[in-house]
Amino acid sequence: MAAEEGKVDPMKQFTIEPLLGSDWQLADGFGIAFTNSALWMAITAVLVTVFVAGGMKRELVPGRWQMAVESMTGFIDDLLEANVGTAGRKYVPYIFTLFMFILFGNLLGLVPVGLIPSVHAFTFTSHFTVTGVLAIMSFSIVLIVGFAKHGLHFFSLFWPANTPAFLALPISLIELVSFMVRPFSLALRLFVAMMAGHVLLKVLASFVIAGGSGGIGTGIMVGVPSFVLMVAISALEILVAGIQAYVFALLTSLYINDAENLH
């Protein structure tokens, strides 16, 4: 451990550590230990609830908080209205929860709570197990709605309108592949974006430490520019946190549109 002093392992931040109940089991072999990942999911859930509950005053003339919450619901409402139409309104609760959960999860991972000793931030959206479950949920909604609404006619999704008959087979194959890839692209996009940003920040942090401990010259030549870059990239990461949450919600609403309004 002493040899590791001053070294930063950029991947260590993604380690899942059980905090409670490491022997809890749902069934044989399905451990459900309460981990640091679960803790941050809990914090996210609480903060989202608190944030939205703050906008529940239902006043005719809204205060600032109520205005903020209403602009968030209005944003998701408009998103679904634009992409799905009036039929999209019934998906607002799901898309809103999805967007807020991912957004708060992304942002909480960027909060520098690591300044407090022995407290470590954890970004659960940087785990494809988490983003995968979210993507599968969205994809399942598309499948359920599609087959419930259109039955087997939903398969015509793979045969775009006005496709000549002799192209039907290759086109439908391509469409099928692109359709099946959706949950993976949805999950991987968020996971990769969040992980890459956090790895980059940690790599730069290791440059700062290594540069600083290498003497005054390397400290100024390497440490200071790396630190400046870290500040800039942190700002960028805040933007990415919002954009990735938005992209997840947007793509989910686009996929739901395929199921709702089959051509």
Partner: peptide, 14 residues
Amino acid sequence: ATLSSQVFWLLVFF
């Protein structure tokens, strides 16, 4: 080691 825990707690909190 963590898949079931991750999925379980995500489903719970989400």
